[in-house]
């Protein structure tokens, strides 16, 4: 239960961070990505704040052999930069620029009640399902 409560509070704090920082407003995302137009640099500070805090904490705790609430660490083990990584990230970037949402802000903004949030999240879930269904064909058996 403590672990589920941790996840619940982490999700809540994450959403508040997205909201306070402006990530939940698509016009700000597009303004940030509009490098060759009326560029709005504010969202750089979201990355800066998140990475400086988390990297420092990661550095202090990375030598632990298990998490404080028990169980085991499940951190990403892949090391190689692959075509799959780059192509997937490029597709994600195109979608991010088109919709003005990435996954977290899309879900967080559902309670805005605005139809764009529901359209985005619905289409994102469809994209994930299509990926899973077609992955054996696209990636081969090891994918």
């Amino acid at each position: 239960m403590a672990q589920n409560l941790t996840a619940l509070i982490s999700g809540l704090v994450f959403a508040l961070g997205l909201g306070v920082s402006g990530m939940t407003q698509p016009q700000k995302i597009v303004g940030f990505l509009d490098l060759f137009g009326d560029w709005q640099p504010a969202l750089i500070f979201v990355m800066l704040g998140a990475i400086s805090f988390h990297s420092l904490m990661y550095y202090f705790f990375k030598h632990r052999t298990s998490p404080l609430l028990g169980g085991d660490f499940r951190m990403p083990t892949l090391k190689n930069v692959t075509p799959r990584l780059v192509i997937g990230s490029a597709i994600f970037g195109v979608g991010w620029g088109m919709a003005g949402f990435c996954p977290g802000p899309g879900i967080t903004s559902l309670f805005s009640g605005q139809s764009a949030s529901f359209q985005f999240v619905g289409a994102m879930l469809v994209g994930m399902i299509i990926f899973k269904v077609t992955a054996p064909l696209v990636l081969g058996e090891d994918g």
């Binding site: 407003q25 698509p26 016009q27 892949l78 990584l85 997937g88 597709i91 605005q114 764009a116 990926f131």
Partner: peptide, 29 residues
């Protein structure tokens, strides 16, 4: 005001964008 959306995006961009975000994030892990 944190959830204010003034982007006024054509629906087709939001839908296609959402689909590409879902597909691309899983392909790119």
């Amino acid at each position: 005001q944190a959830l204010e959306n003034n982007f006024d995006n054509p629906m087709v961009y939001t839908l296609v964008g959402g689909f590409l975000v879902g597909y691309g994030t899983l392909l790119g892990n």
